[in-house]
């Protein structure tokens, strides 16, 4: 399959694979991340989704925002779940029971489902070498349960479980550097991205889909409820995160690191 040109006019003519009517909060970063990821390619995609804001707001009763086959089963197992789906695909293709349609497999998880409770499942799936792309939308805390600290919460942050108190001023620990931890798995492709830099992010997704094996992308995803910011600033803040080097945009392809966007 040829790589899709990333021109807005052309992209806009395409059909959404993640559609409106989902119930994410107004101005949430996550649906912007999801739409950009799914829009980057025309390959058929099957996705799994860890329990979290995205999952709980995108598929409620008979209403699903997904136009691709999608599965949520639990919080800590998006990687294991997609690895089972991918294994079944390989098995049935190998046995000639279904046709090989170059299906791509994605797992979506928030930072809670990725850095913390789903970390073992993610690490295991990456080590096993499944042909899958794991996308973490990192909003820096457990937003779905009401803004509790995660290991992605930055130092000093005020959350509902590490509130800025009279004695303890907020989170006392630094963030876990998950992107580098994933790179240390020796997988062929790891990247960091931001929805404000949509072309950079979509190029990374395209590149990931051309590589066989496990891939990981960590994407910053502002949460105006958790960050106590405005509903209109998800893109502005994700841009600022890149410009201030809080969220550098880089990729690690077969062990070689390259900064993809250099802040001015």
């Amino acid at each position: 399959m040829t790589t899709k040109p990333l021109k807005l006019r052309e992209l806009a003519k395409g059909e959404d694979r993640f559609t409106h009517g989902h119930r994410m909060c107004a101005g949430c970063g996550a649906p912007i991340v999801v739409k950009q990821v799914l829009m980057a390619t025309d390959y058929p995609i099957i996705a799994s989704n860890a329990t979290g804001c995205l999952e709980v707001s995108s598929c409620i009763q008979q209403y699903t925002a997904w136009k691709i086959p999608w599965m949520h089963s639990a919080f800590e197992n998006a990687a294991a779940t997609i690895s089972g789906i991918e294994a079944m695909y390989r098995s049935l293709v190998k046995q000639g029971k279904i046709e090989d349609k170059e299906v791509k497999f994605i797992a979506f998880g928030g930072d809670g489902g990725t850095y913390d409770i789903g970390f073992q499942s993610l690490s295991g799936a990456m080590e096993r070498g499944h042909d899958m792309l794991y996308i973490c939308y990192d909003n820096g805390a457990y937003m779905n349960t009401g803004i509790q600290r995660s290991s992605a919460t930055p130092f000093g942050a005020n959350t509902t479980t590490c509130p800025a108190g009279d004695v303890i001023p907020g989170k006392l620990q630094h963030r876990k550097d998950l992107t580098r931890i994933m790179a240390a798995h020796g997988i062929p492709y790891v990247a960091q991205a931001s929805p404000a830099n949509w072309r950079d992010m979509m190029k990374k997704v395209q590149k990931a889909f051309e590589i066989k094996g496990p891939k990981f992308m960590n994407v910053i995803s502002p949460c105006n409820r958790g960050w106590r910011s405005k509903t209109n600033d998800a893109i502005a803040l994700s841009k600022l995160a890149v410009e201030t080097c809080y969220w550098p945009l880089f990729e690690i392809e077969n062990g070689v690191t390259r900064v993809t966007v250099k802040p001015k």
């Binding site: 959404d16 559609t19 409106h20 009517g21 598929c59 209403y63 997904w66």
Partner: peptide, 11 residues
């Protein structure tokens, strides 16, 4: 959920 993109019915 058998109907893809059915959230379009939820305004």
């Amino acid at each position: 959920v058998l109907e893809a993109g059915s959230s379009a019915e939820f305004k």
